[in-house]
Design a protein around this nucleic acid. Sequence first.
DNA 1: GTAGGGTTAG
Length: 685
Amino acid sequence: MLQLPPPPSTTTFPATAFSPVRLLFSLHRNHFTLTRASSLPIVSVSTASGGSISSLDSRRFDFSPLIEFLSSSVSSITADTDSDALPPEKLSEEELTLAESYNSVPAVLWHSLIKSLASEPASLSTAAALIPWLLRHRLCFSSDLLYSILIHSLGRHRRLQLALSLSSSTPLSPLTLNALISASAMNSRPDIALRILVLMRRRGLLPDQQNYTLILQSLIHSPDPPDPSLLFLLSSDLRSLCLEPDARLLSDLIVAFSRASDPDGALAFLAQTQAQGITPKSSAAVELISSLGNAGRVDEAEAVFAELRHWGLQPRTRAYNALLKGYVKTGALKDAEQVLDEMEHCGVAPDERTYSLLIDAYTNAGRWESARILIKEMEANNVRPNSFVFSRILASFRDKGEWQRSFAVLKEMRSTGIHPDRHFFNVMIDSFGKHNCLHHAMDAFDQMRADGITPDVVTWNTLIDAHSKSGRHDQAMKLFEEMQISGCAPCTTTYNIVINSLGEQEKWEEMKELFGRLREQGLLPNVVTYTTLVDVYGKSGRFKDAIECLEMMKSGGMKPSPTMYHALVNAYAQKGLSDQAVHAFRVMRADGIKPSVLVLNSLINAFGEDRRDTDAFSVLQFMKQHDMQPDVVTYTTLMKALIRVEKFEKVPGVYEEMILYGITPDRKARAMLRSALKYMKHALS
DNA sequence: GTAGGGTTAG
């Protein structure tokens, strides 16, 4: 039995509490909310303060015959599109009588019936069938309004695909398009929402302002940072709209650009906010400070932080943390320490993140003792350190090559009563692996499992790569098998690691087979996959195969990365094929990739190996002209080029220039100079 | 104005 409940006499609906079906009423006028406990959808109406619905108060409508009729004829209605066009007189007597009985149902009730039917998977098709039926019998008008209600409801119930497929059979009016935009945004597909928005604008239609907010919210709430191209599209569209965004929209824009690592975009909207006389939300300012800090732009981060006070807002822990992050990032330890002092001065309590950031800074600066003291201070202030801090410390030691300290970190951690988590173990295994201590890596792996932590795909990948990198390819393959037996599904990264391993062994057939298996598993090769292939083929002189992989990637719609071209240029360089290297370099630039010091170093190597020392030095000129800082590899490679053409006497000058530029020579650079001097002496004697 | 951080592959 499907019916509207009798109108309640008060706004508290005491009768419904005892009803066999539980109804929830919204407090808003003309707002329909419902939950159902029976198998049939219930339509309920809140009539808190009268209004258009109050005239219905004495009526009850039973929709169950209609729903029964629609659900039994759903297939014929949807399959036979002509039925929509049938005039009512050609329909059965039974249907006409049925339609007749709903003559006096007001539009709002039809709307809520559509909503409630669309909220349940079982009655979705009935909802879709109801609309043409209503139109056919002229019981309710404005087809696009009805469809937009249905689309909205589908969007709200995570049925975006259905909403989109519905749009193909619906006239795309501003109403339905707006509904589709909102449904896409609510289902975390800002990309689709934006596509529809662009479509609307091309037709000269104005999207609802609310939709911009929805799209932005969807971009902001996604776990990944917002796609810069989507943000660009959205903001240029907003500009062309010539409308003043409201405070919320502006703050969301600042947050979105900050999260997309585009502080300039965020700053532009901050300026606009202030120009409109609006104070931005402090959460937006915090995101901006954090983004500026990440980019190493601490001065500007400080300025925004100062603005916060200027707006009359008292910075809280989060704002301080954002500022602190910038100082830690740029290694400004003194400033970082001052933040903590100022927090204390202003009575703002540091939290776990505040301490973590500072501990991170101390560890990066090699001040392990200071970090330890801070951990103690943290405990004293009842802020519990967690596995995160220790993972960071561990990673810092790993990057410094101080893998031996892993044991001390683990000990310290355990003494603080913190259990290492999976993340911590993964970093630890990686640290041992990167420094060729496979026994320790395996011990950590065993320890992890003994602690009841199941290795994840990162754990296995790290282990497999560690073995492969130290030349134990067979062991790497064994672990790859073991991983799968344990029930851990390999990901694209796993395949990339194993493909690299096989490529280094020049096991081309097995490598191709694995590349095929990657796709069979429903995984997709990524830029790293293709770069790995280019790299291993290139290094063994199989340039034709390498180019083929590059083309395969491009035809797959993937943008080649700088690393990809670097692999190719490097491969040609090592074989002394300088013309080919130059060609690859040109293709790279044609693809819109800015040359990096890395790829230019390879180009220098290509010329050097091909005895074209003058060309090698012109690359150095190119670097200087384009404001790129040559590094120790640049100069070492140049010295090597000179030695190759036996211009030993020029080598010391290059070495001196390097030192003049403030570059510290490493072991290889010194060795290069020594061998030049040795040859010179030999030539003189 | 109640949310922000860590790990693997070229």
